[in-house]
Design a protein around this nucleic acid. Structure first.
Lengths: 153, 153
DNA sequence: TATTGTTATACTCTATAACTATA
DNA sequence: TATAGTTATAGAGTATAACAATA
């Protein structure tokens, strides 16, 4: 115990390896979808809307793990790109919903294909069994901490 | 093959899980070291300097996986905080080196302890064997791609 | 008063590229 | 010309907090 007084190095932390790989994967994906004019965070939002049909910023924020303010800004950009529409909620006049426009809906499969490719490029070096392991371990951490990526507000 | 035409969802990608966990770990760490007045990137730089003694921005950039410009800005902040010193290189008058000041050297073990704590908080739910597995898988991806986190220039 | 959502502000991280000073 | 490093600019992502409208 007294033998090693040196502070633990960067590489001693799983968090470091995670950050290294995650940054590389996200940046590579960002470059891939840059041509379509969207960012990583925008892709996530678009993909969620694809399934959700229409959903309000608050619920969306909770689901994606962002603050309401961040969703607002993101939505603004996507609306400006004509990919998403912001609609009034007839029941609650404070509330709004977000939904894909046809151009946005058409874009999602293209982005999904690029996400598939990107995943393959990075995780293709792992055997199928190893990929399952990796996913299992990551999910285990997520569910243990009830992660939503970020504090929701 | 024709059965599933839906674009793959967010959760189908390992990159998504990686990003979720990585962001949470990094943000948690950022909050922890906020009290010491440093950021995650600054911690990495400080820790590398702790071992390297003195090293120039270019080599540093390559080692950490950042651009020279990013290192410059980071160094400026650390110098302003009196944690790091910038010294002229006697051999090549274009070159500089960076080195920890005593206050910076004293800070590293504290930060390392918090990094240890943070790692434990997230990865403590995994068994020792699982942690080894996770590290092995991440390292495998890193070495397969010769990752340096970011394009170096 | 509490809630929904927007807006304003600020800071980190990153990139690209222009620039300075050497070599 | 090439290299070491800085500086300038810009945009994404995030947070916090103030604010307006409505409940």
């Amino acid at each position: 115990m007294a033998a090693d007084q040196r502070p633990s190095g960067i590489e001693a932390h799983l968090g470091y390896w995670l950050r290294t790989v995650s940054n590389a994967v996200s940046q590579s994906f960002a470059r891939k979808v840059e041509a379509e004019g969207v960012t990583v965070a925008e892709w996530v939002l678009l993909r969620v809307l694809y399934d959700a049909e229409r959903i309000g910023p608050s619920l969306l924020a909770e689901r994606i793990g962002m603050t309401k303010g961040a969703i607002s800004k993101l939505a603004d950009r996507l609306i400006q790109k004509d990919l998403v529409a912001r609609n009034a909620d007839p029941d609650d006049r404070r509330a709004h919903t977000l939904a894909l426009k046809p151009s946005g809906r058409a874009l999602v499969p293209k982005l999904a294909a690029q996400a598939d490719q990107n995943d393959e490029a990075f995780f293709g070096v792992l055997a199928a069994k190893e990929r399952d392991q990796l996913e299992r371990l990551l999910r285990k951490i997520v569910s243990a901490r009830e992660l939503k990526t970020m504090p929701t507000d």
